[in-house]
Design a protein around this nucleic acid. Sequence first.
RNA 1: CGGGGCGUGGCUCAGCCUGGUAGAGCGCUGCGUUCGGGACGCAGAGGUCGCAAGUUCAAAUCUUGUCGCCCCGACCA
Length: 525
Amino acid sequence: MPRGVPESFARFISPLPRTPFAPTPMPAPKTAISPTREVDYPEWYQQVIKAADLAENSSVRGCMVIKPWGYQLWENIQRALDDMFKATGHQNAYFPLFIPMSYLEKEAEHVEGFAKECAVVTHHRLEPNPDGGLRPAGKLEEPLIVRPTSETIIGATYAKWVQSYRDLPILINQWANVVRWEMRTRMFLRTAEFLWQEGHTVHATAAEAIAETEKMVDVYRDFAQDWMAMPVIVGSKTAKERFPGAVDTLSIEAMMQDRKALQAGTSHFLGQNFAKAQDIKFQSEKGGVEHAWTTSWGVSTRLVGALIMTHSDDDGLVLPPRLAPTHVVIQPIYKGDSRAEVMAEAQSLRDEIAAQSYAGAPVRVTIDDRDIRGGEKKWYHVKRGVPIRLEIGPKDIAAGTVFCGIRNQPKSFGISRSELVSTIGTKLETLQSELFAAALHLRESNTVTITNEADFRDFFSTQNEDKIHGGFAHAYFADEDALEPLLKELKVTIRCVPRGDNTTPGTCFLTGRPAEKKAVFAKAY
RNA sequence: CGGGGCGUGGCUCAGCCUGGUAGAGCGCUGCGUUCGGGACGCAGAGGUCGCAAGUUCAAAUCUUGUCGCCCCGACCA
């Protein structure tokens, strides 16, 4: 590489020798996305978002514009989850964007966790600035923060709602935006403002609240696996990784294609911490006054990032059919006179496919009849991750066939029209399960069990440290604090203590001391 | 907040070192040729070179200040 050329620009330098005479046209790229995952994974991620038209950066630092294709994806995620929340007895409500600053102060750990990244509203008016422009005026008596999460304001409200054990449980969810003033942002994975849902529940007993926490993390697991085709590990966070103010934090952890871990959802058992801080108490059946037990749980637009990094390839986005805004796109191939005939045929094909069902609903099919070249159109849909692409032209019409491309298969194929229509639902199901299987295989083949420090170091610091991140390491540990220097050095974190994986005690991989907990270690987003 | 880098048509950038009044590719518009595969030709629209001072006959180019953004670290769904 020439001196002074940053590594990230290396891809722009053609590896092919170029003759000084006939300027060879750039060879058609073998992949639609460059750089490829292998060359520069973070840059590949950005390029997929761009090529798939999911989102773009806005003029506001750290805040993105979610474009229609990306937002439809989010809407599908919302719809599926919302149904699951309703099915588990929850209702939606909405609480304010602004939270009085004093509310945040009530729970000590909570303040510590969020104070550093809060947007603060101090004025309520603008007035002309003598030097031109505008300046804030009308100082607020008490500053308001823009919610980084809503435990405090919702808790304060619940305190008024709860009088008696008869008022419990309260099972409410809200779909909202929140703001966390992050220093470094990445589209979908960490933005200053993001969309999410946050469930907040109140219970009469610890056992009931714990059951709720477990129930909701299971909902997240099911959603991740059944809808996103993303295998996840369910487990408990260690003390240092817990949500500020929680007694226990459960999470789902997924492995991305660069083998780094991504926390995709969390469910917190808050004990009585928030209930005490906010005075949520009730009169029990026996007549005594008790503090209630609360939970909170959430997933965010980060799931879109998870989806991208789990399935997409060097040709762009790959969408699991259950969440794809469009299942099938039909591309009519015509020239000159054949247009009317081909269009009519494409429309009847669309109607037949729309009459088929997949996952209990009609197949979502569209025709792309834009007047652009076929190749360009093909790649447009490939990059956007449409599960199935169909092409139909005069030759197909004559032969009673269509040409079919499935997003996870390199080659398109011809198929009789009737067979295609009758198997379209099956093809979508197959794709969905193949995506899951591939993601699971990646995780399984990059997961190890580690029993000593040397192996641990080797696993997380081998080869190209920029690109290779080891994967998931299962290991026993005795004391989280004792691990800290090593984890910091290797930039590894404890992802979670997997549920149901701690029945037998073992030996700490670092200290050799007896250990009860076995955790998953990984580099993480 | 520390350490680097960058602000030039919609996008990506060249030009700056060695001041002389703005370029390329892509995209866009029109016309034509193409058309089972991310086409090609011709014509065209589009920029007070981030902002402000200074040096100079003359500043995208030199100086100072300022604002914004990106990358690398400390924090994080």
